[in-house]
């Protein structure tokens, strides 16, 4: 099993970060594991963590007023889950639930925010990467809003 410090530089999210920054980020990270059905977080709770999925699958869900939650997105190996740790008021906007055995690296968002405040260069580098994740998710949501499969091919 690779250590977090070994793993992070190979991950696309952290690619290109200077070694000291990776070491700094790794200092805020721990390995975690979730069983199928276990939640990573719930909507409305404080968002002081984000995750890099190493193995497994996570559903991002919105609770419906009546009936079962709706799955609005899913995350898989190498995906990054969570940006609310960086955006006030730092509360989760969705539920995240493991749908199979899932291993992840959990990053302490409060710890990272402190480091970003202390060193804006680190903050900017991380912000660029989080914005990329947000952009991909936003684009996915926008195209799915078109309901392209609902119209004839």
């Amino acid at each position: 099993m690779q250590t977090i410090t070994d793993y992070l530089p190979q991950h696309p999210f952290f690619a290109g970060l200077p070694e000291p920054v990776v070491a700094l980020v790794a200092g805020c990270a721990v390995n975690v594991h979730f069983r199928p059905g276990q939640h990573l977080f719930h909507e409305g709770e404080p968002a002081d963590t984000f995750y890099v999925i190493r193995h497994g699958r996570v559903s991002l869900e919105v609770r419906a007023p009546a009936g079962s939650p709706v799955v609005v997105d899913s995350a898989h190996a190498d995906d990054v889950v969570g940006w609310s740790w960086l955006v006030p008021p730092h509360r989760w906007l969705f539920d995240a639930r493991a749908t199979e055995e899932t291993s992840a690296i959990a990053f302490d968002g409060a710890c990272l925010r402190d480091k970003c405040d202390t060193d804006p260069a680190v903050g900017y580098a991380l912000l660029q990467r989080v914005v990329q994740v947000m952009s991909t998710r936003l684009q996915s949501a926008r195209i799915r809003l078109l309901d392209v499969y609902g119209a004839p091919v």
Binding site: R57, S59, L60, S68, V71, S74, T99, E100, S140
Partner: peptide, 11 residues
């Protein structure tokens, strides 16, 4: 779009 019981990918 997946309902809660869907275990596969959404996206």
């Amino acid at each position: 779009n997946g309902q809660h019981a869907w275990q596969g990918r959404v996206g």
